[in-house]
Nucleic acid binder design. Structure first.
Lengths: 97, 97
DNA sequence: TCAAAATATCTTGCATACACAGATATCAAA
DNA sequence: TTTGATATCTGTGTATGCAAGATATTTTGA
């Protein structure tokens, strides 16, 4: 979901997304998770990939943009995340019967 | 973490915890996940189990109370959850570089 | 009396996700 | 020409989650 959310804001590539997530404290998400996840999302039609030559050093970057299905899926995922995090917060803060 | 948090508040048993979590909208957590998870936590010393006869129908209930290691672990998990949910919320709300 | 329903736990089988580690490729700078 | 930064991808082991079903006990009601 986070990868999709980043891509929705603006197209990006794996390496850059790993760094962005890491900046937000989500450094548990390593490249070994990100690349397979991006591949899966492309295969299932949530995102579209295209290559862009790097301006600096390094091989071509595989950029991804969000697809129509991806926008829909992201909306659902956000709702699910909302419900999940709300529920978890209620439980860990001890507000339950 | 949610199971531990429930048990810390007051000792409980799997079936009851499943219902409590479900009330908070966490009905993704089915019994097929809860019982193995409780067993693992007992095996690793985070919680302690004991049997209590049911007052209504049904077989004896396996109650769990939190152990010393469990309290410590729960504190860590809460901190991790805090960092994770904060990070995810920043990303899905589009507040990143 | 006997069947059904509610309560409660546990196990097996399957799929999948992920982290870790390492392989690979490209280009710039020293 | 070697090092370092950038960038992607893959293989392996482990953990985990769920669905589904087996099992047990007691109450309720037909």
């Amino acid at each position: 979901m986070c990868l999709l959310a980043l891509i929705e804001e603006e197209p990006s590539y794996g390496y850059e997304m790993a760094n962005k997530l890491s900046e937000q404290g989500l450094d548990l998400v390593s490249e070994g998770s990100i690349y397979p996840s991006l591949s899966r999302m492309q295969r299932s039609g949530l995102i579209e990939g295209y290559f862009v030559e790097a301006d600096g050093p390094g091989p071509p970057r595989k950029y991804y943009r969000i697809a129509k299905n991806g926008k829909q899926r992201l909306k659902e995922w956000k709702k699910e995340w909302e419900a999940l995090s709300t529920g978890v917060n209620l439980v860990v803060k001890g507000e339950n019967g």
